[in-house]
Design a protein around this nucleic acid. Structure first.
Lengths: 232, 232
DNA sequence: TAAAAAAACTGAGAAATATCAACTTTTATT
DNA sequence: AATAAAAGTTGATATTTCTCAGTTTTTTTA
C-alpha cells in the first residue's frame, strides 16, 4: 500500500452536495477523484477565462464566483453569481473546447477541479448523470432567457430591482445580505452604467424600499421591489 | 402482417439530416418512428407555446420557424430563426416539463414530432446521442451569450447590422435573400422598436450598404456591415 | 500612518431610443 | 373590385440612459 491517505478527503466522503452527483457510483466518483485538483483562488482571481481552452469542470466548495461574458470595449455582462454547491460546465465541452464566458472569484474560493476527460468518461457511462447535466444546462438557459427579457423589455429601474431580488433570493438567500460585488459588478448584472445603478439605488433608499450601507443591504419593501421588477 | 407500409417513410429512410441523429441504431430510430407524428403547420401558426407543457421534440423538415421568448406587455424577443435540419428541445425537458419559449411558423412548415418519452428513452440508451444533445444545447447557449452582449453593449445600428448578417449568413446562407419575417420580427430579433429598425434599414440603404425591396434583401457592402456590427 | 490608488457618488448635459400620430402601401375579405 | 384590415413608413417629440468631469470616501501600498 503506497499511500494510506488515498481515501482521506476522497470524493465519496466529500461533504459538499453537487446536484446530480448523487447518481455517481463509487467507481465513477473514483474517476473524478483521480483527476481532481483542489485549488484555492483569492478574491479577484480569474478561474475561467473566456476564449481559453476549457480543461476543467469547476466545482465550488466555498466562496462566491461571478460568471460573466466579456463584450465590447472592456465591458462585460454578469450572467450569474455562483455559490457553494454550484459547478460550472463550459459550453465549449463537447464542442470547440473553448470557454465562452469567464468566471472570477468575488471572495476567496475553494474549488475542486475535475478534468473534462474524467467528466466525459462519467457522462458517457452514467445516463442518469448525463440527464442531470442536461437539466443543469437547461436551468442555466432559463436564466439566460430571463436575462434577455430583462434587458430588452425592462427599463433600468426594473432591471436594478431584479438584481436586488436575485441577490436576495437566489444568491444570499436572505432579505439582509452583505455582498462582495462592487457597484460596477451589480451594474453589470443589471446591464446599466455604474452611475445609473448608484442613482437608482439611492432612489430606492430614499423611497424606503431598501436600506443600504456600503455593501450591506436590507430589503424593506419586498412587494414594492417585486412590483417594480414586474412592471419594468 | 397488419400494415405493409409500416416501414415506408420510416425514420431509417428519412432523407432529412438532423445533427447528432447519425449515431442512432435502427432500433433507436424505430423508437422515434413509433412515437412520431408528421405535422404540417401553416405560416403564422404556433408550434411551441411558452408556458405550456412540452411534449415533443420538434424536428423541422421544411420551412422556417422563429423561436421567441414572450416578455412583458405583449413584446417578445426572437432568439433564433430555425431552418430545415434544425430541431427544438425545450429546456423544460428533464426539468419542469414546461416550454420556456415559443416557436411559430414563419412559412408553411413540415415537422416530425417525437415524443419526449421516446427522446428520453434514446437519450438514456445512447451516450453518443446524449453527448450530441448536450453539444446542441451548448451551441444554443453560445447564441444566447452572443445575444446578451449584443443587447447590452451595442447600439441599435450595430444590432440591426448583426441581424442582417445573421439572416444572410446563418439562416438564408446567401447575401441575397428573401425573408418572410415581418419588420416587427426583425426588430424583435434586434431588440429595437419597429420604427427604429425601419429607419436604420433606410440609413443602410441610403449609404449603399444594402439593397432592400420589400422583403427582398441584398447585402452590397459586407465589410461595412461587419464593421458596424463589430464597433457596435 | 501618509500617500496613492481605487471605488463610490453627484450633477449637468449630450446622445440614444422609444412613443405617438399620421399617412401610405400591401394584403386579405366580402 | 370595393372595402377593411394589417403592415410598413415618416416626422416630431418625449423619455431614457449614458458619458464626462469633478468630488468624496474607502482601500491599498509604501
Amino acid at each position: 500500500m503506497i499511500n494510506k491517505n488515498v481515501n482521506i478527503n476522497g470524493c465519496e466522503s466529500c461533504a459538499m452536495k453537487f446536484d446530480g452527483f448523487e447518481t455517481l457510483s463509487d467507481q465513477q466518483l473514483n474517476t473524478f477523484k483521480l483527476s481532481h485538483c483542489k485549488v484555492e483562488y483569492n478574491k479577484g482571481e480569474t478561474i475561467i477565462k473566456q476564449g481559453a481552452r476549457c480543461s476543467n469542470l469547476v466545482c465550488i466548495k466555498s466562496g462566491y464566483v461571478k460568471m460573466h461574458v466579456e463584450g465590447l470595449g472592456g465591458k462585460s455582462v454578469i450572467v450569474k453569481v455562483l455559490k457553494p454547491g454550484d459547478f460550472i460546465i463550459s459550453p465549449g465541452i463537447f464542442d470547440d473546447n473553448k470557454n465562452h464566458f469567464s468566471a472570477s472569484a468575488i471572495t476567496d474560493v475553494n474549488t475542486c477541479l475535475i478534468s473534462i476527460e474524467a467528466f466525459s468518461k462519467v457522462f458517457h457511462s452514467n445516463d442518469h448523470f448525463a440527464e442531470s447535466i442536461l437539466q443543469h444546462n437547461h436551468r442555466l438557459m432559463q436564466t439566460l432567457y430571463h436575462q434577455l427579457i430583462n434587458l430588452s423589455h425592462k427599463k433600468m429601474t426594473g432591471r436594478v430591482a431584479d438584481t436586488l431580488l436575485y441577490l436576495s433570493k437566489e444568491v444570499y438567500e436572505s432579505n439582509v445580505f452583505h455582498t462582495t460585488l462592487s457597484r460596477q459588478d451589480m451594474a453589470d448584472l443589471s446591464s446599466v452604467s455604474k452611475e445609473s445603478f448608484i442613482r437608482i439605488l439611492k432612489d430606492f433608499k430614499d423611497s424606503g424600499i431598501i436600506l443600504v450601507d456600503g455593501n450591506q443591504f436590507k430589503i424593506q419593501a419586498l412587494n414594492s421591489l417585486q412590483t417594480i421588477s414586474k412592471v419594468g
